[in-house]
Amino acid sequence: MSVEMVAVFAGSSIRLAMPLLLSAAGELVSERAGVLNMSVEGMMLMGAFGGAMGSLYTGSPVLGLLIGIVAVIPVAALQAFLSNTLRANQIVTGIGINILVLGATTTAYRAILGSRSRTEIPGLDKWAPPFLGDIPWFGDAVFHQTWLLYAGLVVVAIAAWVMRYTALGLAVHAAGAEPRAVDKSGLSVTRIRYGAVFFTGFMSALAGCFLSIGDIHTFTEGMTNGGGYLALAAVIFGNWKIGRTVLACLFFGAATALQFQLPAMGINVPNALLIMLPYLMALLAVGGLVGRQSAPAYLTQAFVR
């Protein structure tokens, strides 16, 4: 394997891992607070759609990104309302929202652009950090990426810092581990959980926009194609810890990149095996084969005062 190939592989692994990383980081916060958003998939898809349409009509990908974020707000609000206020089954509502969003975005896309449109949509600019981008061989292939990737990394780092070192982070953790104690301390479990779901929505919107206007510069029907479920798998595999979740995302990204890399290297591994690998690993993780799992104690359980 030549140096160029390693560089391309590393670059595409990071690029493919990024949407997972964004949405998984968002989902991790929400699951820590006790709400499982099966709807990450739908939120990502809505973000991708909003971002693409916004960028197409305003001609500005940055406005598109904002529109993508705004478009996810109703989806996140619906999920938060159903799981916190109506105390509905979080899994069922998540699946319902995913079907709803897939149907709605597909319908709207067809109505707006017709069925087999391949309209090129203005995408976000690329950027490389100084010095890193100039490294011979690697610089261009690895670090020359959409600026959203770097911005996203910063957001993930801030979120990790808030979760670990601030009172807010402590409250979020407690809402999923000891909701009753949070309630007694005078904070509102419901409000914390609403906030956490909205944060998942925000991060999923970034992830969706990364797909549509960051990576391929177009929108296709159902383009997230299970990415939201992969993000859930990454949180599970990451054992609800941010470091391990990031590693899981990178690993999943690398597995996806290998689908394109291996045939180029003349190695014949069934494509399907590489695609299912993340799900298989997550299954092994929840099956207790990769150390003990420690999900937040009150995950998926609605809080009743």
């Binding site: 619906l78 079907i99 709803l100 149907g103 709605a104 597909t106 319908t107």
Partner: peptide, 16 residues
């Protein structure tokens, strides 16, 4: 895909 919208609305409404 409109059928999917209908299904999604049914699930969400019932769950709520």
């Amino acid at each position: 895909a409109i059928v999917m919208v209908i299904q999604g609305v049914i699930i969400v409404t019932l769950a709520g």
